[in-house]
């Protein structure tokens, strides 16, 4: 009789232990996810470089999309309070190197013969979609550095074609992407490991999910280059890193 109970207990106990261990592990992950962050703003000092207008008259489909709102280059976009848009911030030193890629699948859209967003930050192996909303055919032609290990491609997307889904295999800051049919169309893929963020139109950013530790944060701007800052992130709190790029 007794041995019967013992046997049952012996069966339940390991299961209990497993569940508890699982819960502990999970809660650790939850802790890490809700862990530290790095936040700040990126600003431009001095005069902003002149952003030339884009003449799309070659393709009436494109020029029509900008009838009321003329298109301009987007290399250096300065928003309110001199905030710099489209700056990518990522951790260049201090990571373990085992970070899993983000599971989000961002979209790189072709809209009015421009790229939205102009700069798309990604993790290595993170999937992303290239979509088109234009009634003209685009070709998407990323040109990675041959030495970085990424393989370039060149595919056209006719109107209403299904999205192209792909990812990058190696870290590379940054891969230019262009459309040859509309030579003014120009954007970037910034492929990094670990958490990253891109500044909004006010120049502010927040890198989420940074485990506690000391890091070097790099801010990358396509025309103005890179800047770095050292930060220490405590668990559950936000470290601050502001950057200022100099205009010409």
């Amino acid at each position: 009789m007794k041995s019967h109970y013992v046997r049952k207990l012996a069966a339940v106990l390991p299961a209990l232990v497993l569940v508890c261990a699982g819960a502990v592990l999970l809660s650790q992950k939850v802790n890490a996810a809700g862990g530290g962050s790095i936040t700040g703003t990126v600003k431009l000092s001095g005069t902003a470089p002149h952003m030339k207008g884009i003449d799309m008259s070659k393709d009436p489909v494109c020029s029509k999309a900008h009838d009321t709102n003329p298109a301009k280059m987007e290399n250096v976009l300065v928003g309110s309070g001199d905030g710099l848009e489209n700056v990518v911030l990522y951790i260049s030193q201090g990571l373990t190197g085992n970070e899993a890629p983000s599971s989000q699948e961002p979209t790189f859209a072709q809209k009015g013969c421009m790229y939205t967003p102009h700069v798309l930050a990604l993790n290595v192996d993170q999937k992303f979609k290239v979509t088109t909303e234009d009634q003209t055919t685009h070709n998407i032609h990323p040109l990675p550095d041959p030495t970085a290990g990424n393989i370039g491609w060149n595919k056209s997307q006719p109107p209403a074609a299904p999205p192209i889904e792909t990812s990058w295999k190696n870290q590379e800051v940054a891969i230019p992407v262009k459309c040859n049919i509309h030579p003014w169309m120009h954007g970037w893929f910034v492929v990094v490991k670990g958490p990253y963020a891109t500044t909004d139109d006010k120049g502010s950013y927040t890198i989420q999910n940074v485990p506690a530790g000391s890091y070097t944060v790099t801010a990358w701007q396509e025309d103005l280059g890179t800047q770095t800052a050292k930060v220490t992130v405590a668990a559950g709190s936000a470290a601050k890193a502001d950057f200022t790029f100099k205009g010409k």
């Binding site: 008259s57 070659k58 393709d59 003209t136 055919t137 070709n139 060149n154 056209s156 040859n180 049919i181």
Partner: peptide
Amino acid sequence: CGLGHYNMKAY
């Protein structure tokens, strides 16, 4: 001249 040949034009 390549894939965009058909759309290489100007006014």
